[in-house]
Nucleic acid binder design. Sequence first.
DNA 1: ACTTACCTAGGGATTTTCCCCTAGATTTAA
DNA 2: TTAAATCTAGGGGAAAATCCCTAGGTAAGT
Lengths: 208, 208
Amino acid sequence: MITIAIADDHPMVVTGICNMLQAYEDIHIIQRHHTGASLMQGLQQQIPDVLLLDIHLAGLNSITLLPQLQQQYPQLKILVISSIDNPFVIRDLLKKGIHGYTTKGIQPGLLQQAIVEVYKGQIYVEPMIRERMLASVLPAAKETDARLTKREMEILQLLCDGDNNYDIAEKLFLSHRTVENHRLSIYFKLEVKNIAQLIKTAQIQGLI
Amino acid sequence: MITIAIADDHPMVVTGICNMLQAYEDIHIIQRHHTGASLMQGLQQQIPDVLLLDIHLAGLNSITLLPQLQQQYPQLKILVISSIDNPFVIRDLLKKGIHGYTTKGIQPGLLQQAIVEVYKGQIYVEPMIRERMLASVLPAAKETDARLTKREMEILQLLCDGDNNYDIAEKLFLSHRTVENHRLSIYFKLEVKNIAQLIKTAQIQGLI
DNA sequence: ACTTACCTAGGGATTTTCCCCTAGATTTAA
DNA sequence: TTAAATCTAGGGGAAAATCCCTAGGTAAGT
């Protein structure tokens, strides 16, 4: 018997999930929450085996709850359910220590499977997403050694604010040529060839 | 008795809706679809009073089906259900002739109310969205400027890919000066002053 | 002590962007 | 059927970015 708590600010999704899981006798839903506050309170009463967590809870990004959840309930398995299908975003979530990820489009049978896998201590990622993540495995490895230095990160931030070399030079008390050098080395590391691609890549990789 | 067809590529949402509406005896769900093709076929068999339509159907934007739906089934009421809560986007949908809009976060009672309203020929917008649309009435003037034309959107996409004016000119068979003009008018509309801010703004506003 | 990475700065040239304009053709809305 | 918006294209010039380089100082590890 696996106990479940659901946290999602869309009642429709909550009832949808409940309905899906009704058929499985080994899964028992013990809590339903629509807000982060309600969730944290509920966990104090009783700790489920698996938490089905939507990324968007009314007004707050539930990912911000992760560190707290992990610290207070280290044995709690967290299965994130969301609409996002960007492999980079999901990879970041997994890095943050969630135990599984599925989209809201998952088939009932797979959801049950996901819960069981996560419960058993496996990391579960919905098959379709898993494929897409595989497709981005190489860029993922690349991204690791594409680590920017402190100065480069600093300049990246300002570039992303729309500052030009001269603005940045003034703010950091540097020559604009120095800023240019940093900028070009950022381009090289992130394998982009202009500022537009840089901003996009930085956003996708969560560098800003 | 109001007959309903549901079109949503997320089984979870479909079962959630069905579950929500089970309690209401005056509402009868006669069709469930996960793809646009299935939907169009189903409508040929039997026309429901109200169509609950998700914006995202497997692989296609269901909004593209609107003209066809309206032409073939002028008496069909279309209630769009989605996760989008951007008032501007919703206003555009209403302009395109949908009869109602709710998010997936709607309460069961309100969903039933929405269906009844739409069935009776009213335009229904979820209360929370309605408020936010009201709140954007004044900036609506500003937003009018901020709406990009077709050509501008096209160029925005390419700019976000890192193409420069010359690349874009070649791809679209234009002069690079023309591309430049479009680019500058995009800058003006989005109130940015260079490509870096543009990419960032476009990402944040979901324009790409 | 020595290599390596990092930060700094610049010369010089080319390409692209950015800013100020005008202006005709076409499309759309009032 | 006007009026307004959009799409097209360009002149001319200033500013910035991009692409070649070199090179000294500093900091960290081996």
